[in-house]
């Protein structure tokens, strides 16, 4: 099926099988491999990206469901090549990553969290990231980073 998806501001048209998962479409058809696949069963959040500005798990969505929609991946977050998104900066400054595998999903989920709740408490950050697992168990600094990006928790 012919679909057309705006990915990070650029419209891509491709012919995909209806059963193609959004995460496979983004990684293989569009060629953006920043979005990771962890569990492939909707549990870990590694595949989190934004569809129309909201965090979703792209292993649990079909590419055809994103037809005509706007998708943002980790590659599309930074405003320019030499400037990071404030959430990326906060992750770096707070040492919120170890192996980095969960990081793209964590960052995308965190940006969506602050969009919906700009000044969360620590408990709200922990709850808001309940759909993202870090196998390095670095949650403490991830929570610190999100609080720091929100201007709180200093």
């Amino acid at each position: 099926m012919e679909i057309s998806v705006e990915v990070n501001g650029v419209t891509h048209s491709s012919d995909v099988e209806p059963r193609t998962l959004l995460v496979h479409y983004v990684r293989e058809a569009v060629g953006l491999t920043g979005t990771n696949i962890g569990c492939d069963t909707s549990s870990c959040g590694a595949c989190t990206l934004h569809v129309n500005g909201e965090a979703v798990k792209s292993c649990t969505m079909l590419a055809v469901q994103a037809d005509g929609q706007s998708v943002t991946t980790i590659e599309g977050l930074a405003p320019s090549d030499d400037e990071m998104h404030p959430m990326q900066t906060a992750f770096m400054e707070c040492h919120a990553l170890q192996c980095g595998y969960c990081t793209p999903g964590m960052v995308m989920a965190s940006v969506s969290l602050l969009d919906e709740n700009p000044s969360p408490t620590e408990a709200e950050v922990r709850e808001g990231l309940e759909g993202n697992l870090c196998r390095c168990t670095g949650y403490h600094n991830i929570v610190k980073a999100v609080l720091s990006a929100s201007g709180g928790g200093k």
Partner: peptide
């Protein structure tokens, strides 16, 4: 229900 990502869909 689930997590925010699930509740968005």
């Amino acid at each position: 229900v689930g997590d925010p990502q699930v509740r968005h869909r």
